[in-house]
Write a protein that binds this DNA or RNA. Structure first.
Lengths: 120, 120
DNA sequence: GGTTTTACTAACCCACAGGTTAGCAGTAAC
DNA sequence: GTTACTGCTAACCTGTGGGTTAGTAAAACC
């Protein structure tokens, strides 16, 4: 795959190609819980109720829905162990989001600092 | 500012610090139009109606709201020229989102390819 | 002087993300 | 045998992101 360089981001042609791709990516990880779930699972595979406790505030219904979405998009794998225990596992594909997450986090920190310094 | 390295993303401690930051960032650029507007402005400063035509499908009301959000968050600057023309300008701070946009676009392309290849 | 364009705002509507509460079949603990 | 936990789903509610239509004051065009 071709990778876009930073300078190309302001370049018109590349820009037009990138727009829908960036939107697609956003569409998949946007929402109140997606990132939190991936991050929680990044710290170890978890059972449904473990996950619910880790993400204080999420309801069973919503967690169930979000997990289904993430599974559909291939970011989370549902494993049923021999003893019947169900595990939600953050898989390799979710790891491919590292770059995105790291950039988001970096920018988020920058932004918070800007606000703290009353630059906005 | 400290920058998080990729390997740190799966590391528990860093992970916890990064979670809210990534969410903050997402919160600001999520939504149907934010990215499109920034990209459109990235290709040159624009007047209100120019922008509306460039983003086919957006209503005046929504565009007005989105621009206010972006202005509030410091990503877009509203300039009134001497002759009264109003220009919306993508500023330096919006450029600091380059890394995020580029990673999003890269991952979006990867994801589309995965779907095209029926890997999901 | 009439029409068109600019830069919006007001009033209203609706789908849906997300929340609340309740319940339920299966398993484990005591 | 009953209590508690697991892994959900059903029914229902609400807020809001976003859409539609209409209108308006001011400037620009013809």
């Amino acid at each position: 795959m071709e990778t876009a360089t930073l300078t190309e981001v302001r370049d018109g042609v590349k820009c037009i190609e990138m727009m829908p791709a960036a939107e697609d990516a956003l569409y998949i990880i946007a929402g109140k819980w997606k990132v939190r779930i991936l991050m929680a699972l990044g710290m170890g595979d978890k059972r449904f109720n473990e996950l619910q406790r880790a993400l204080s505030g999420i309801s069973a219904r919503v967690l169930s829905n979000e997990l289904k979405d993430l599974e559909l998009n291939g970011l989370v794998t549902k494993q049923t162990l021999a003893n019947g225990t169900i595990l939600y596992v953050r898989n390799d594909y979710a790891d491919s989001l590292r770059g995105v997450m790291s950039e988001l986090a970096k920018w988020g920190l920058l932004h918070k600092q800007k606000i703290r310094n009353r630059e906005i």
